[in-house]
Design a protein around this nucleic acid. Structure first.
Lengths: 258, 258
DNA sequence: TTTTCATTGCGTCATCATGACACAATGTAA
DNA sequence: TTACATTGTGTCATGATGACGCAATGAAAA
């Protein structure tokens, strides 16, 4: 228990001076693996519950930088796609009792007006990362950090389930305006992989042939001469994004409407 | 100057205990009048600058409620459409020097570590209101509160110009998913008025006939038997929204894409 | 070695949405 | 009474979309 208590104590003592006292960030870190969207979650140190990676904001730190910091610490990744999507600002969203109970189990005495027990407003970010590049790492409060299938989440603490859901809704709405495929897929990918990604995010089956036609019509993909090896049945071609054209297209939105 | 100083002093003394100390809300209040989008702005008490209506958040108040409170105070309106759209969290966005200078001009002594001078993260909200129903009212710090054409804004304080711009971008992206017409127009409106609204938000000319066809195809409008009176040339029909169908349609998005 | 068969690449067709524009009707102002 | 800007309605060519056919591929099964 010492392993955990020592860093916690440091956080509790110094934290109030270093951090903004009522604001935090929480990150919905998304990856795509084996045809499924995955979320990175941290195991609660005692409870049979999991939590989104989150953190406090240093007094002179941009909120975005705080989210990047959390992301770097949990995944080892630097240059990631990160998007603020919603503020969760209900006073009831965090529970003083919940945390007090934890610290009691820790054996850490805690006055009930300690800053860390107060109400926290949290800024939700979602991050899109290339699954294979991330190296999940636990934090002070949790040795266990791992990916969960977005459709088979464990019990989450507080309102973290709502945060994940809101992130998915935001992702769906921004699908045509953000380089979502580029950030979630490896550099080379096949058309069925890309389609599966869209299907997972939209939670909807798409026609294979029409999907291909539509995406090619955007002129953002570049087909490579290489086909996928060691695969049963006919081998699909590899594609990669033409980043320049992709970004140009996103500015207008891939699916204009108006 | 007393008129201003007395309430300011109360705010400064009691504020630190009542409010969250590093978080605020700012509202981009939008109305539509004479074919133009208008923003409600407050005149700075000394400077030749204007500001978005904003405010602090009580320690046990939901952030959304704080925004509603600001809105009610500035417009007298209760039941408005309000949407959180972005958090502005750069430490450099507020300027301690700027505010210190103001308080010096007020003749109010202020220690440089006062909570009100510290860095503030602000949550941006946009509100859509029916122009004619609002009764703009100034606040403690500003007797002057008035509408400005979105394309002819005066100089704004701090990063408020950026906040307005971000609000417009968000509004554009959400145009097909939010009841924007319903909230900005009076109950009865003509097709040209509705079109002008869309053109203003999208900053783009639309073909009159195609626009009419498209909006009617959504089946969210109900044509009244009444035509607009006292207008030169041919009188257009009045329409109103079929709110039930409108809300149904918005759930899917008016312009699906996928 | 041959056969099987799920999967991929490419194409067709009917239908619907879109952009561009024509024309008659309306009703105030000249 | 006439002029004319504006509105209501419609047409037409083009392009996008959804539904589906068919041959080619290549590892796995026979």
């Amino acid at each position: 228990m010492l392993r955990v208590n020592e860093p916690i104590n440091q956080l509790l003592l110094a934290g109030g001076d270093n951090f903004l006292t009522s604001l935090s960030v929480d990150c919905v870190i998304l990856g795509f693996h084996e045809g499924q969207l995955k979320v990175l979650l941290l195991k609660h140190r005692y409870r049979d519950m999991w939590a989104l990676p989150g953190g406090f904001i240093y007094k002179h730190e941009p909120t975005d930088a705080a989210a990047y910091r959390v992301l770097k610490e949990r995944t080892g990744l630097d240059d990631v796609f990160l998007n603020q999507f919603h503020v969760f600002g209900d006073p009831g969203r965090s529970s003083k009792e919940f945390h007090l109970e934890d610290f009691e189990t820790d054996g850490i005495p805690m006055s009930s007006d300690h800053w860390i027990l107060q109400r926290f407003v949290t800024i939700g970010y979602y991050a899109l990362i290339e699954f294979s590049k991330a190296i999940p790492a636990g934090d002070l409060l949790s040795e266990n950090c791992q990916w969960w299938d977005i459709h088979e989440l464990p019990t989450l603490i507080l309102d973290h389930h709502e945060i994940v859901n809101k992130a998915l809704v935001a992702l769906r709405l921004q699908l045509s305006h953000q380089p979502i495929g580029y950030n979630l897929l490896p550099e080379k990918f096949t058309m069925p992989e890309l389609q599966k990604l869209y299907e997972t995010i939209l939670d909807k089956k798409l026609d294979r042939r029409n999907f291909q036609r539509k995406l090619l019509s955007f002129n953002i993909l570049q087909r490579l001469d290489e086909t996928k090896k060691g695969v049963a049945h006919k081998a699909p071609y590899y594609y990669k994004f033409d980043l320049e054209k992709y970004n140009d297209a996103l500015r207008e939105g891939l699916d204009s409407g108006w």
